[in-house]
Design a protein around this nucleic acid. Structure first.
Length: 269
DNA sequence: ATGGTGGATGTTCCA
């Protein structure tokens, strides 16, 4: 029988500031692999001893000063798998791909941090929005070209809530960056280029599910104006191996917490 | 319609 592989994804919004919360995450969720986004630390400043001290002796990171940045901590051996292009030729540290050792053969694991896209949903007025749409078009095309992709998992802060039930009010967010039709259609096209939504496998529409609540909302739990921006996808061959899911909503109340909460899936692989 | 908060940085950008 294949062992459980629990893969978590968390936009940590500064790795160094929230290093103590990674201990809480490890103790609470017991993930085998942790994929982080918005580490906001350049590689030369990365706390190299931290992953092993947390119980994750295998770790890789790709960061830059102040912005973006991704990292993967693992209990199982991982290997860098640098097969993807530099998206939009920005050198932005928004993606890390590794292979994870598993009983049934290696799993290809992608950790993404998609551009947030600024405030104005218009390419001409806001180049960040154009960059976001270009980014998800590039990733879609790249995965679509990888015919036969199998045993792959994609997680991360994709900064788009694709379904009506992924936001607190579909109608009121149609013009808000993260839920505009070009974004939701673009993200679903990317997903359909080779993946299934592993969390919606367990929590199908129209049940609402969120992973992010703005810092600007006082009493976030009561107002519950959330969005599902953080995702876990698997290739269809792995769908029968899905065993569970977690959205650690309580993490939004952690002392000095991130505005995103961890999302994880369990696979028997 | 507006502004609300938080992190890294450095006198502002990004989310």
């Amino acid at each position: 029988m294949a062992a459980r592989l629990r893969i978590a994804s968390w936009n940590i919004n500064s790795l160094r500031l929230r290093l103590p919360l990674l201990r809480v995450l490890a103790d609470t969720l017991d993930p085998d692999v942790i994929c982080l986004q918005e580490t906001k630390v350049q590689d030369s400043e990365f706390p190299q001893a931290a992953p092993a001290e947390l119980g994750y002796p295998h770790a890789l990171w790709r960061g830059m000063k102040g912005y973006n940045g991704v990292a993967i901590f693992s209990r199982r051996p991982i290997a860098a798998h640098d097969i993807a292009p530099d998206w939009c030729a920005r050198g932005d540290c928004r993606h890390l791909c590794v292979t994870v050792a598993a009983e049934g053969g290696p799993i290809e694991l992608h950790d993404f941090y998609v551009p947030a896209g600024g405030d104005i949903p218009d390419r001409a007025a806001n180049p960040k929005y154009g960059h976001k749409l270009d980014f998800i078009a590039e990733t879609r095309a790249w995965f679509a070209a990888r015919t036969g992709l199998a045993r792959a998992v994609l997680v991360g802060d994709l900064n788009i809530a694709p379904l009506d039930c992924d936001v607190w009010s579909h109608r009121q967010l149609l013009d808000v960056v993260s839920h505009t039709p070009p974004e939701t259609e673009g993200l679903l096209a990317w997903q359909n280029a080779g993946f299934v939504d592993a969390v919606r496998h367990f929590v199908p529409a129209p049940e609402k599910l969120f992973t992010w609540w703005s810092y600007r909302n006082r009493d976030w739990r009561a107002s519950d104006r959330g969005r599902r921006l953080d995702h876990a996808w698997v290739t269809p061959d792995l769908a029968p191996a899905l065993r569970g899911w977690q959205v650690l909503k309580d993490a939004r109340d952690w002392e000095r917490g991130s505005d995103h909460v961890p999302v994880s899936i369990d696979l028997a692989v």
